[in-house]
Structures are given as structure tokens and as C-alpha cells.
Computed example of a mutant assay.
Amino acid sequence: MTKPTDVSEQPPYLRIVAGIRQRIIDGELGPGDRVPSIRQIAREWGVALATATRAVTTLRLEGLVETRPRTGTVVAGTTPARPPRRHSSPAPASAPASAAASEQELTLERIVRTAIDIADAEGLSALSMRGVAARLGVAAMSPYRYVPSKDDLILLMADTAFGEETYPADAPEEWRSRIELGARTLWTLYRRHPWLAQIGSLTRPLVVPHLMVHAEWMLGALDGHGLDPTTLFDIHVLLYSHTQGLAVQLEWEAHAEASTGQSEDQWMDSRAPALQGLVESGRFPTFAKVVGAFDDGYDLRLDVLFEFGLKALLDGLTPIVEGQEPVA
């Protein structure tokens, strides 16, 4: 008679799977509830990030959880009435064949796309080469056969993400329409991949081909209006900084919510007494007047700010761009 496997003898990732599965079965975590992040699991169970990633991947394969962009991993909409078949240890004989198949199917494109999925769901800080390998079901060192380091992987991720949107061959003739299309295209990409705005700065910009496609579009819109090269490039940098600068807030807020467990509104509510004290101190009369005019507080809307700022910038730049002698 086969002796049942003691839970304590199971691999660490299966003990984590069992623990989270039980929370779901007991109703502690319901459909749509966010399950612990990779980093939270690593801290709670005292395991490596790769082990935590493997546990979440197993839960996903069992259909218990699903990943939603910028929300993270949540309990799936419907959960089984009873727990699925328990894994046993040691693994069945078919496991090595499955792992070998994963190794054979491994490509640079799969590695990059998997890394993007992790960054989209958990943030760039949760990305690791081991985590990517665990998600793909391959040996920890396998991705290094295709990409030498995490930094190189991030560059490939950025280039791939920036390449998801392109521009029409029949470009708008009016420079302002072209700039608006270019800025909104970048904003769409940053919205889709909030971590993207965290890579590179104005002083140390990314040098990847697909980002250059967007730069070429913006520079082409400004070229031919008689601007000297420095002014033309300054305008390009200013417009890019507006888009990227606002987009940085997307990942910062997601990270803050994950680390504090508070939404933006909850965080502001917790600071209400301190804010009220500043308003009533009499030291900041204009601030008090403006804040007091809001019925339900100020609603920070990044999409609205992006459009408002873009219009203000273009309104201000129009006399500069159109005030020059056009180049034939």
C-alpha cells in the first residue's frame, strides 16, 4: 500500500499552492479577490522569487487564479467546488518529458513576451531571470542561452513593447495633427505597459529601434518649418517628457498600492486630518480657497491631464513652429 505523501515532504512551491488553494476553498479569497503577489508570497513563506512564481503559475494552470493587467493575480471568476487533483512528490515520470518539451520550445520571443507579462501584472521590480524561467517551466539558467542578463532582457522588452504600435503611411499633412497622433500613440503604449515609462531618462535615453520609430515620426512632423536643429530637438524632447513624465505616475501608483495595500482614495482619506490641518492653519490661503471649492475633493485624472497638457504645449509652440520661414 502506498504511503500518503506528507505535506511537509512536498516541494515548497506545492505547499504554497496548497495553502492558497485552501484559502480559496474556505472562502477567505473569493472570485476577483487579489491573491498575494510574488514578493508577498516570497516573504510570507520564506522562499525565493522563482519558487513563488512557480507556485502562482501552478495555481494559474489549475484554473484557480488568473492574471489581470495592472491588477495582478486574482481568484478566477469561478472556482471548483472541490480541490483539483493534488500533486504528489516525487513528480510523475511524465514531468521530465514535459520539461524537455518546454526547453525545446523555448525561443527568445517567448522569453521576452513572458517577461512583459510578468512586468505588466507585477511591475518591473518583480521581474527576474529565474522568475521568467519558472513561468516558462524551464531550467533556471535556460533563458541565459538567449539573453545574457536581466538588463539586456529589459531592453528587448522595451523594444518589443514600443513596436506594438506604428503609424499610417498616409501621414496627416498638418504638423499639429501628426504630433497629436504621435503623443497619443506613446501614451497608449505607456498605459498598456506602465513599467515602460520607468526605463531610461531624458539624460540617458533608451536607444532601441522601435522607440526611434516614434522619435522619427515626431521629428518628421516638425521638420521643414524653418526651425534650427537645436530648437527642433528641444521641442521633441519637451513633448516626449510630457508624455513619459505623466506615464511614470502609472507604475508609481501601482507600486504604492501593492506595497501599502491602500488604493489612491484610501490613502488620501487616511491623510485627510493632516490636509485639513494645513487648510485651517491660515498659512496657505490660496490653497485653502481652491481646495475648499471642490465638492468631493480633487480627482486626479491622468488621461485628462495628458490631453490638457498636450493642448497647452501645442498652443504655446504654434507661434514658434509656424512663425518660421518654411523650408522648401
Rank of each mutant, 00 (worst) to 15 (best):
E264H: 12
S142P: 04
R43V: 12
L310A: 04
V17K: 01
A81W: 06
I154F: 04
T53P: 01
A288F: 04
R113Q: 12
G77W: 04
G27M: 02
G323D: 04
T5Y: 02
R184V: 09
G292I: 07
E62G: 01
R110C: 13
T231S: 07
L124W: 03
I25E: 06
S149Y: 10
R34V: 09
F162G: 00
R178L: 11
T5R: 04
G316Q: 14
S128A: 07
M218S: 00
V17D: 02
G261L: 11
L64K: 01
L222Q: 03
R135W: 12
A293K: 14
P285A: 07
S263L: 07
P80V: 03
V75Q: 01
A121P: 00
E165Y: 13
D299K: 09
V327T: 12
G32N: 08
F162R: 04
E280V: 01
P172R: 06
L227A: 09
L59T: 01
L181V: 05
E216C: 10
M212G: 15
E122M: 01
R204K: 08
F287Y: 12
G297I: 11
A328S: 12
I320C: 02
L14F: 01
P168L: 07
E165W: 10
G277I: 05
V74P: 02
A254W: 01
R135P: 03
M141S: 09
S88M: 10
G32H: 06
L275I: 07
E325K: 13
R34F: 00
R86Q: 12
A91L: 09
